[in-house]
């Protein structure tokens, strides 16, 4: 299978007892053991890693990356739907339903671990489907607000 990790494209294929990874013309073999609970022990020439997998997020040794399976071309185009990057609380809602917004305009401010995270308009358009209220607990995957692109664009 082809994987997109960060901005990079890698290929992985199953081998007995693990995975072979192709990267930059190199082949690397890893022995993999399912530890349960979303954990995989990965042993390769570069060492032993406890890899955790949580949907499209995965990590090892404190690093976390987004991993997606590379599907047919054209999939994954932005829909303008904004979702929290982590579990958080809605701190402020800066727009109203139907409001016109500019690219990069702040729409909703989330608070997680005492830090503010601002969800911004990915492009110019109109706010539709605003479903964020102050104090609400939100999770990744929740659709908080959507920006509808102008028809003419």
């Amino acid at each position: 299978m082809k994987l997109r990790i960060g901005g990079e494209l890698l290929r992985a294929e199953a081998v007995p007892g693990g995975m072979r990874v192709f990267r930059d013309g190199r082949e690397l073999e890893f022995a993999c053991t399912d530890l349960g609970n979303g954990l995989v022990r990965v042993v390769g020439a570069s060492g032993t890693f406890t890899v955790w997998v949580n949907g499209a997020r995965a990590g090892a040794r404190g690093e976390a990356l987004s991993v997606t399976r590379e599907l047919a071309r054209g999939a994954g185009a932005s829909t303008g739907t904004l979702s929290p990057p982590m579990p958080a609380t809605v701190g402020r809602v800066l727009v109203v339903e139907g409001e016109r917004v500019a690219t990069g305009q702040a729409l909703v401010v989330l608070v997680a671990m005492k830090t503010e995270i601002t969800l911004r308009a990915p492009y110019e358009g109109r706010v539709v489907g605003l479903r964020a209220t102050i104090g609400q607990n939100v999770r990744p995957g929740d659709r908080l607000v959507q920006v509808e692109r102008d028809e003419t664009r």
Binding site: M19, L28, V42, V51
Partner: peptide
């Protein structure tokens, strides 16, 4: 870590 994550994610 990137390579290990690729192997672990693909395995899972």
């Amino acid at each position: 870590a990137v390579e290990a994550i690729a192997a672990g994610w693909a395995f899972a």
